[in-house]
């Protein structure tokens, strides 16, 4: 099978358009999903049982069902309740919800990895639970969770391909379209695979920079903690 390079020149712009949509959707999912993941992680620690229940249920449901089913639920079931959203919005929301459940577990593991005495000493100065989190615990959690957060982000990029099943015009959708028009699956999908790979590699490089920056600011023993906590934080 020879490679037909004209497909790249003819359909490249169409694929790049899909690529751009993938980037927008993933960025949107991160912007929504990470803060919501934090909310879920804190919700699991709430004093109120009802909040703990909702946070835990949300995390369990989204972690233990296939992403494609979650997407179908949102896309096909919501309209029955009168909620008609464009496919791209459903895609962002679905990916954010799915991602937040995983982000929440990573953040929770990071919080647990910070020594208990840190929270106690903060509370003993008169800080509220939230102030202690904000100023003492979460800043120490950040370097611990960054590697696992990176992994989850990279897997969100890959999962976003599923959104092609609800007609979101993202990269995989574009590849399927090109393939259908040219009957050249190899060229179409190899280019798409390269684009996903490039995106994830770029993200990984950026995150590694951030990791280095964050761990340079923190001291030697918290760096040691990062290493010790990493397996716990990446599980699940």
């Amino acid at each position: 099978m020879s490679i037909d390079l004209s497909i790249i020149t003819n359909y490249g712009p169409q694929l790049l358009l899909g690529f751009w949509m993938t980037i927008k959707i993933v960025v949107g999912a991160i912007i929504l999903g990470m803060p919501f993941g934090l909310v879920l992680a804190l919700g699991r620690r709430s004093r109120l049982a009802i909040i703990r229940f909702f946070a835990t249920s949300f995390i369990e449901v989204f972690r233990n069902t296939p992403f494609i089913i979650q997407v179908f639920m949102l896309f096909y079931v919501l309209p029955f309740y009168g909620l008609h959203l464009p496919a791209e919005y459903v895609g962002v929301v679905a990916l954010a919800a799915f991602g937040s459940a995983y982000f929440a577990e990573v953040i929770r593991g990071g919080i647990d990895a910070v020594a208990k005495g840190q929270l106690e000493s903060a509370r003993a100065t008169g800080m509220s639970d939230w102030q202690a989190m904000r100023y003492i615990i979460l800043p120490q959690t950040l370097p611990i969770i960054l590697p696992a957060m990176t992994n989850q982000t990279l897997s969100l990029v890959k999962e976003s391909a599923i959104l092609s099943t609800i007609t979101v015009g993202e990269l995989t959708m574009a590849a399927i379209t090109v393939q259908g028009e040219t009957f050249r699956p190899f060229e179409a999908f190899i280019m798409v695979a390269l684009l996903y790979w490039a995106l994830n590699e770029t993200l990984a490089i950026i995150m590694r920079r951030v990791e280095r920056k964050v761990s340079r600011r923190t001291s030697s023993s918290s760096r040691a903690k990062v290493v010790r906590a990493a397996p716990a934080a990446t599980e699940g």
Partner: peptide, 13 residues
């Protein structure tokens, strides 16, 4: 009311 702990609990960050 201040509290001082056996293992210091200074904030490493």
């Amino acid at each position: 009311v201040g509290m001082v702990f056996q293992n210091f609990n200074v904030w490493p960050h």
